[in-house]
Amino acid sequence: MDLPISPPVAPMLAKAVKTMPRGDLYYEPKFDGFRCVVFRDGDDVVLSSRGEKPLTRYFPELVETVKAELPERCVIDGEVIIRRGSRLDFDALSQRIHPAESRVRLLAEQTPASFVAFDVLALGDETCFETPFKERRALLERALAKARPPVHLSPITDSFEVATRWFDEFEGAGLDGVVAKSADLPYAPDKRLMFKVKHERTADCVVAGFRWHKSGPIVGSLLLGLFDGDGALRHVGVAASFTMKRREELVAELEPYRMSDVSGHPWSAWASQGEADRMPGAVSRWTGKKDLSWVALRPELVCEVAYEHMEGDRFRHTARFRRWRTDRTPESCTYEQLEVPVEFDLDQILT
């Protein structure tokens, strides 16, 4: 591969802010997918992840798409996404990371991926690192002028009002916020020079277990549950934002609720119900052999957590512990408390 930039390259990152920033900024929707820097030199294509790991083998259909739709020699930053109906489907996207070649090929046919481009690092023999973002965007638009789906150019606006509307509306299509970039911003790999505004909500959850911290006998994360319409307690994610001192304190706080016999725990029978991939102790394709064993607690504690959004029936990202809710009963912690965004058609964003 003979490009002015060699893979891998750590993509430029965004710093989280609580409110939409104003100024000489450009705003883009924040797509919920896999960050991906695409390198193309003729028939040679490399897809590189945010962590600079290769994604190429997992998305063979995108390799062919890149050859057909992107410039002959380029390095382009963007997001790999999968859509399901009118919205993004991160669960389907995460399923694409699979060790078996046969499974990768099957999923490429069943749940084909798309690529949303939003920045350019190199075109031909020229690098664009020092080129201001406003000019890079113009270069990207010209480079992708004839590109067809499943390659898309990210929408962009310099209007604060439009960006605010996007923030409110696009969540209904599975997007998770807005990214803001200065017009004169150079491309700085692995630097948090952009801004991101993401949705944050709170929910009251049952604490039905915990995992030990990797450093020793202190609490690493709390396992959270919500009751569904049938009265079953579903595992919805974890809360893990604690100081080391607080992790030590939690050991004593949780001790009275620990169960020596888990046969009566609401999650003990999940495996027999064919839901092993949803069990708190299931092996993750992302963590490999990482120890995901957990300690069962009587499901009597309730805590308030902050979360960004749901992916199916689970929190999309790690939730953040806010406080204990001694005034709430576990039975009151249901999915009905969660705010559901108004649906929005993804086609209206991508076109």
Score class of each variant (00 low, 15 high):
residue 246 R to Y: 14
residue 212 W to K: 05
residue 222 L to C: 10
residue 291 D to S: 06
residue 197 V to F: 07
residue 276 A to L: 12
residue 207 V to A: 13
residue 200 E to N: 08
residue 188 A to V: 07
residue 268 S to C: 07
residue 278 R to W: 03
residue 276 A to E: 12
residue 223 L to W: 05
residue 278 R to F: 07
residue 285 R to N: 03
residue 293 S to N: 10
residue 207 V to G: 13
residue 219 V to H: 11
residue 277 D to I: 01
residue 208 A to Q: 06
residue 171 E to V: 06
residue 292 L to W: 05
residue 175 L to F: 10
residue 172 G to L: 15
residue 283 V to G: 11
residue 209 G to M: 03
residue 246 R to Q: 15
residue 217 P to H: 12
residue 246 R to F: 15
residue 238 V to T: 15
residue 189 P to G: 05
residue 207 V to P: 10
residue 188 A to Y: 02
residue 186 P to F: 11
residue 265 H to E: 00
residue 191 K to G: 00
residue 189 P to Y: 07
residue 172 G to D: 14
residue 246 R to S: 11
residue 216 G to A: 09
residue 181 K to G: 01
residue 179 V to P: 12
residue 242 F to D: 13
residue 206 V to Y: 13
residue 231 G to R: 13
residue 232 A to R: 15
residue 171 E to F: 12
residue 235 H to V: 00
residue 258 R to L: 06
residue 169 E to S: 14
residue 173 A to R: 14
residue 256 P to W: 06
residue 234 R to N: 07
residue 225 G to F: 08
residue 221 S to E: 14
residue 270 W to S: 01
residue 215 S to R: 13
residue 260 S to C: 00
residue 271 A to I: 07
residue 182 S to W: 14
residue 174 G to L: 14
residue 262 V to M: 03
residue 219 V to S: 13
residue 169 E to T: 09
residue 273 Q to E: 12
residue 183 A to V: 13
residue 187 Y to W: 11
residue 264 G to E: 05
residue 219 V to T: 11
residue 298 R to T: 01
residue 219 V to F: 10
residue 299 P to Q: 01
residue 283 V to R: 15
residue 292 L to R: 12
residue 190 D to V: 02
residue 216 G to M: 09
residue 202 T to R: 13
residue 279 M to V: 00
residue 293 S to A: 10
residue 205 C to V: 15
residue 210 F to S: 02
residue 289 K to F: 07
residue 254 L to T: 02
residue 289 K to L: 08
residue 216 G to W: 08
residue 176 D to A: 14
residue 201 R to C: 05
residue 272 S to Y: 04
residue 230 D to C: 09
residue 232 A to H: 11
residue 273 Q to I: 01
residue 290 K to Q: 08
residue 216 G to T: 05
residue 250 L to S: 05
residue 226 L to D: 03
residue 198 K to L: 06
residue 174 G to F: 14
residue 178 V to F: 06
residue 237 G to E: 09
residue 198 K to H: 05
residue 234 R to D: 02
residue 206 V to T: 07
residue 199 H to W: 12
residue 265 H to P: 01
residue 256 P to S: 03
residue 217 P to C: 14
residue 244 M to D: 15
residue 277 D to R: 08
residue 212 W to H: 05
residue 226 L to T: 00
residue 282 A to W: 04
residue 193 L to S: 03
residue 240 A to P: 04
residue 295 V to D: 05
residue 283 V to C: 09
residue 231 G to N: 12
residue 259 M to G: 01
residue 185 L to A: 04
residue 253 E to W: 03
residue 229 G to P: 09
